[in-house]
């Protein structure tokens, strides 16, 4: 029965590949947690780095990361949701729509360093915004746009047709139907997409490294520069000057990313139950 043996071997290999994937994930998480946990303290989170070896905390980099992420999401959310509303509810299949879809796909595939150089050329230099939260957020916006557009469009399309009929049947206009029934019904899935995009933005490095600047600074206005956690981690790791701080930063970053991912997952599961 060689047929059966071949089957057994193949199944074992498939199990192995799946287990490898899971094992790698846990190895990475575990590695960061084990090495970073000793570093984590209120002092580390809430104080400034000091001296050439960046001893002390990472507070300004946390603020910079959250600042730029929040700013980018504030800019991208309305644009992406309304764009998705257009594609899912208003657009008639045709040339215009296929151009928009093609552009969104292209935008989604642009390497993040290219997006970073683009941000540098347009926002930092041509628009004279300089290295700043705003420049980085604008560059991030273009990176996030196709992601949020796609998840939102899928969320809107998943709303059953007959819900729309019910609304039209009551004499609602198209916009009333979209705003009062379709968007509320799609909201949990839209939020899930937004949270996942936020996680992506938090972890992004190549886009922000040449748009936000690298100097440690506490940003107040959107025109201030700063150094996000990812860039801080990169610099500490590459220069090998303060590995404990690098582990601590990596762990904080990981906690934020896992937090976003798990809360998106929780949200999605809760709405599926209802």
């Amino acid at each position: 029965m060689s047929k059966r043996i071949a089957n057994q071997i193949a199944l074992a290999l498939l199990w192995t590949s799946a287990l490898t994937t899971v094992a790698v994930l846990f190895a990475v998480i575990l590695y960061v947690v084990v090495n970073g946990i000793g570093q984590l303290s209120l002092g580390f989170i809430f104080t400034w780095p000091r001296g050439v070896n960046a001893e002390g905390g990472v507070w300004p980099t946390i603020v910079s990361t959250l600042y730029v992420t929040a700013l980018a999401m504030v800019i991208v959310t309305p644009i992406a949701i309304l764009a998705a509303v257009y594609l899912a509810e208003y657009a008639v299949q045709g040339r215009l729509v296929s151009i928009i879809r093609c552009a969104a796909d292209t935008l989604a595939s642009v390497p993040s360093i290219v997006m970073g150089l683009f941000g540098l050329a347009l926002f930092v230099e041509a628009a004279h915004i300089g290295f700043s939260m705003l420049s980085a957020a604008l560059a991030l916006t273009f990176l996030m746009l196709p992601i949020v557009m796609r998840t939102t469009e899928e969320a809107i399309r998943a709303v059953p047709k007959y819900i729309r009929w019910g609304s039209y049947g009551l004499g609602a206009t198209k916009w009333q139907t979209v705003r009062r029934t379709v968007l509320p019904a799609a909201m949990p899935r839209i939020l899930t997409g937004l949270i996942l995009a936020t996680g992506r933005a938090v972890g992004e490095t190549a886009v922000v490294i040449y748009t936000m600047g690298q100097a440690i600074n506490m940003p107040v206005s959107p025109l201030d520069s700063g150094r996000p956690m990812t860039v801080h981690l990169y610099l500490l790791a590459m220069e090998g000057i303060n590995l404990p701080a690098a582990y601590g930063t990596a762990l904080l970053l990981m906690i934020m990313i896992l937090g976003f991912n798990l809360s998106a997952r929780y949200l999605l599961r809760r709405t599926r139950k209802v």
Partner: peptide
């Protein structure tokens, strides 16, 4: 047609309450 649909209501085969 929007005002018309207010005057001419409709019930569908599939009950379609809004998720609210």
């Amino acid at each position: 047609p929007v005002d018309l649909r207010r005057r001419v209501g409709m019930i569908f085969q599939q009950p379609n309450p809004f998720p609210m």
